[in-house]
């Protein structure tokens, strides 16, 4: 976890703390999102820093998932959804017309709220991404990728004897780690997770949280969560959304111990939301 910020420091100052000086991997500027005529996000400016876990928190319907889905253009699949503003991955604007969405999603992977393994074998679930992107030149390489991904997702020991069995036959927690392994298998740079633990029991949740903490070393992670404790446990940076507005963002410790905004204060102390 990050170094604790001293009280009284402003958000801008805390931005220069231990996590604040990491390289900016993705950045949103003046992001507005409309579903038809309804605006879901208003002028959101948010930086995602490399090898950090950034938590998006806020009451239901405030636009966390919407922002997350902007980061790999999953919103493109919704007909009525329109995004304006600028979202950069490294130096390129991902909403530029010459950006290939398919490639983008291989670089910015996603794990969903409900585990959604394909109705295929465990092996095939993981091999799916590398296959469509032609990442393995032969069977041996593919095997290696699958095993490595499972190992990184902390699932290998549990399933190594039954890679041919359907992925849908695993427990909920195992399924979610399978989905994480599936996302890792295409070697993304950023992994987006939308409430990845909301369908899991506390023990499975603990495992996934542990996993997220380990993954931070190699990947940049953005996670949406409803659990304050979870945000505090796994993230270094936290962004608080309210009614489509990014109210406050900063180092997790600062947000939880010394929020600048009254609304953040109310939310994290459970006064609304």
């Amino acid at each position: 976890m990050s170094k604790k910020n001293e009280n009284g420091k402003s958000a801008a100052e805390s931005g220069n703390g231990a996590n604040g000086d990491r390289r900016i991997k993705m950045s949103g500027r003046k992001v507005n999102v409309f579903y038809g005529s309804k605006q879901a996000l208003f002028d959101v400016d948010l930086d995602i820093r490399e090898n950090n876990v950034t938590a998006l928190i806020g009451p239901s319907g405030c636009g966390k998932s919407t922002f997350l889905r902007c980061l790999n253009r999953m919103n493109d699949t919704i007909d009525v959804c329109k995004v304006t503003g600028e979202i950069k991955l490294d130096e390129t604007d991902i909403y530029n017309s010459d950006v290939d969405v398919v490639e983008l999603r291989a670089r910015v992977g996603m794990v969903f709220q409900k585990p959604n393994p394909f109705p295929k074998s465990i092996f095939e679930n993981i091999a799916y991404g590398p296959r469509i992107h032609g990442m393995a030149r032969n069977k041996a390489e593919l095997d290696e990728t699958v095993v490595n991904s499972l190992k990184r997702a902390g699932l290998y020991e549990e399933v190594k004897d039954r890679l041919d069995e359907p992925g849908t036959g695993l427990s909920g927690g195992q399924q979610q780690r399978l989905c994480i392994a599936r996302a890792i298998a295409v070697s993304p740079e950023v992994i987006l997770m939308d409430e990845p633990c909301s369908a899991l029991d506390p023990i499975a949740t603990a495992k996934v949280e542990e996993l997220i903490d380990e993954l931070r070393e190699n990947y940049t992670i953005v996670i949406v969560t409803h659990s304050m404790q979870q945000a505090a446990r796994v993230s270094q940076r936290t962004a608080f959304f309210h009614l489509g507005i990014l109210v406050e963002e900063g180092d997790t410790d600062q947000i939880f111990t010394n929020p600048k905004d009254e609304r953040t204060q109310d939310y994290i102390t459970g006064r609304f939301g």
């Binding site: 992977g109 959604n116 992107h133």
Partner: peptide, 12 residues
């Protein structure tokens, strides 16, 4: 969710 999962991995 299966369509989303596949699209999220960069499948067309």
């Amino acid at each position: 969710s299966l369509r989303d999962g596949s699209a999220g991995l960069g499948a067309t």
